Amino acid sequence: MEMRAEEAARRWLADQGVRQVRENWVSDEEPDVLLTANQVAHSWAGDVFAEDLDAADQLRLAFGLLDLLDEYWVTCEIRFANESADGPLPADVLWDGYRERLEADRDAEAVTYSLWVDWFEDHATSASAFAAVLGIDIDRVVAEPTEALLRRAARVLECSGPVRWTVKELTYRTAMRLPALHAAVFRGLLASFHDVYGDLEPAAALALLGWLDLPTDTPHLAELRHVLAAGHKNHYRSPGAWDDAVRSCS
């Protein structure tokens, strides 16, 4: 699926006069100027949503560009289109696209960064986005784990720091039933404390931490346990708490 979308995007760029040359790109307008994938994304990704296609096909083409260019900016254009006067984009196609790329055995940094800083940090979208990429089917992931489903679950848990605790707690608890996800739940808890917009409830998070089967020398485990036991909710709300924990646990 991804490869077909990527090839469709490559053909579309060629129609715009843009083609790949080794690790770079060139346009017919300035064939002597090498462009980076990021420059191509900034210059052409938004044009996808002006194509004479229905919104679902525009979105599929945009995801193809994301596969081809691997640039976060493509996800920004998707979000802009979703919030535009012509939006919202078809939710099934939007979240199918995210889930598919979260499950793929390839780098997903652009996708997870998009979830983290755009969808999860915005309280207007974090609950629905988190549900779409993991919350609605975490029971299936735990009951019938595959490499792809585990990959998606781990990636979402690790970037879920900004999601409100009341939204993600049950998903965390369900994920804990699968030892393969314990490390990802831990990283989610750690991000929930350290992210600027991270959210957790110290007592509940400490209880979850106690159920995780982790090596005792896991980096930051002792410090996280220390700050949670002291009732701290967030690194930025309790300046110095983490440093105190580091000193206490050293």
Rank of each mutant, 00 (worst) to 15 (best):
A110W: 03
G97L: 11
L89T: 05
A132I: 01
D122A: 13
W119C: 11
A85T: 12
L102Q: 04
R99Y: 03
A91Y: 08
E121R: 07
A108K: 01
L115F: 08
W95A: 00
L102I: 07
S84W: 14
D86R: 15
A124R: 15
T125H: 11
G97K: 09
E100A: 13
F130L: 11
L89I: 06
E100M: 12
A108I: 01
S126G: 06
P90W: 04
E121P: 01
A131T: 06
W95P: 00
D96W: 08
R101V: 02
R99Q: 08
T125E: 09
A81D: 14
V111E: 12
L94P: 06
A104C: 08
A124E: 15
D118H: 13
A110G: 04
S114G: 10
A104K: 09
N82K: 08
G135N: 02
L94W: 08
Y98E: 11
Y113F: 12
L94E: 10
V111W: 09
S84I: 13
L134H: 07
V117P: 04
T112Y: 02
R101Y: 02
G135Q: 01
W119L: 15
W95T: 02
A110R: 01
L115A: 06
A131I: 01
G87E: 12
A124W: 15
S128E: 11
F120D: 09
A110L: 01
A81P: 14
S128M: 07
G135D: 00
W95C: 00
R99K: 08
V93R: 03
A91P: 05
L102A: 05
